[in-house]
């Protein structure tokens, strides 16, 4: 009964595939054509060759946005990985109230970017936010992230880490919880100390999960838009723009769809490069399963 149903299978997967290709697949390919044309509101696209690419590659702000994206993505992804690893290891034992602690740790997953920005803006509001006052009084640091681009990027990274830490934590904790106790016990019998057990047993068992978490976070972190837009709108003087903001501003503030599309292509290529190894492994695995 599960063999001769080719048409039934096609019918059952078609709604998902139609949705995916109509909203993501076809538009993502169509962007290639748009990136080779000049077009704005209400006009038909005119073919201009590689002009849009020349334009964005000649734009200092585009390179600044690329550099900012690179910095923020790496800071966010590795900070999350290290924090999540430490917390996951600390969490991996039995104690009363563990369920409650776990609930609190994943609570930021429920918080929208907008609400998270409200929270952290309040804490770091120049002059009056509690952390700003503390930084000033304790270390004499004037943390004015609305004026200082590096501090602006720092706050964007902080908010981003706060929102997304639960994702990495869940994946790593699930993996750590599956490390067999007798494997660790065996290592201890051999004379390994706790650090060696962690390095040579735990870390080795969870390595695939770390890779997956890293890859997904790289891909999702590159999409960064909302936290950055809501905190600084790319300012001051477009110094804290990331690629998502550069694209949005070009497309929906300046209605210059050609260069925006070219930026989109750059983002797609970067995402697929990061995903390529995972996709390759997945494809091989799937082919062997048929």
């Amino acid at each position: 009964m599960f063999e001769a149903n080719r048409w039934v299978a096609a019918l059952m997967v078609s709604p998902v595939l139609i949705l995916l290709f109509a909203i993501i697949g076809i538009p993502s390919v169509f962007v290639i054509w748009l990136s080779l044309t000049e077009t704005t509101f209400g006009t038909d696209p005119v073919f201009v060759g590689l002009d849009n690419y020349r334009q964005i590659f000649g734009d200092r702000i585009f390179w600044r946005a690329t550099l900012n994206t690179f910095i923020v993505v790496n800071v966010v992804v590795y900070a999350e990985l290290i924090l999540a690893l430490i917390i996951a290891v600390a969490l991996n034992f039995r104690f009363i109230g563990k369920g409650l602690v776990f609930s609190i740790l994943i609570a930021p997953y429920a918080v929208s970017e907008v609400s998270a920005v409200v929270m952290w803006k309040f804490a770091f509001e120049p002059g009056i936010g509690v952390f700003n006052v503390l930084l000033k009084q304790a270390f004499g640091i004037d943390f004015n992230w609305t004026r200082n681009p590096m501090q602006g990027l720092g706050l964007i990274s902080l908010v981003s880490i706060w929102i997304h830490l639960p994702f990495t934590l869940i994946i790593l904790y699930s993996a750590i919880a599956t490390v067999p106790e007798d494997l660790k016990a065996a290592a201890r019998v051999e004379g390994a100390n706790e650090w060696q057990v962690f390095r040579h047993v735990t870390l080795r068992v969870i390595a695939p999960a770390i890779l997956i978490a890293l890859m997904f976070r790289y891909i999702f972190a590159m999409r960064l838009f909302s936290e950055a837009w809501l905190l600084t709108e790319g300012g001051p003087a477009r110094m804290t723009e990331v690629l998502g903001i550069y694209l949005y501003r070009t497309a929906f503030r300046y209605f210059d769809f050609g260069p925006a599309a070219a930026t989109g292509i750059a983002m797609q290529i970067l995402s697929l490069l990061v995903a390529s190894y995972y996709l390759y492994r997945l494809y091989k695995g799937m082919r062997n399963n048929v």
Partner: peptide
């Protein structure tokens, strides 16, 4: 429940599309 070459390819394309950044599709 069903296995075929075509289904495998479509399953792979689903995951492939998931990797593309959402903001890009807003332009077209």
């Amino acid at each position: 429940r069903f296995k075929s070459r075509w289904l495998t390819l479509s399953a792979f394309s689903m995951i492939f599309l998931r990797m593309l950044p959402p903001v890009v599709v807003t332009i077209p």
